[in-house]
Amino acid sequence: MSAGAGFGGLLHPVAQALRGLAKYLQGVMGADAYRKYLEHHAAAGHGTPPMDERAFWRDRTDRQDTNPQGRCC
């Protein structure tokens, strides 16, 4: 990524901070779930290929159908 690179060194820390914030928010929202699944899959060394992105998200929400998670008041 080269966001902010064209603005010289001054904006670089700002761009970096923003990118860090975006990454943090993605984590909180659970947007990085597929990446984490792939990491786990590769590390665990299963013989089968991992699910593709579409199948993964489908599986994720479908499992929530039978395993609901509470949200508080």
């Binding site: 943090y24 984590g27 909180v28 659970g30 779930a33 984490k36 699944y37 792939l38 990491e39 786990h40 899959h41 665990a44 599986d59 994720r60 499992r63």
Partner: peptide, 16 residues
């Protein structure tokens, strides 16, 4: 298992 049981960064999990 990469789905329900996933090690999560403590700061992210705090927000979550």
């Amino acid at each position: 298992d990469g789905k329900d049981y996933v090690r999560t960064d403590r700061n992210v999990l705090f927000g979550h």
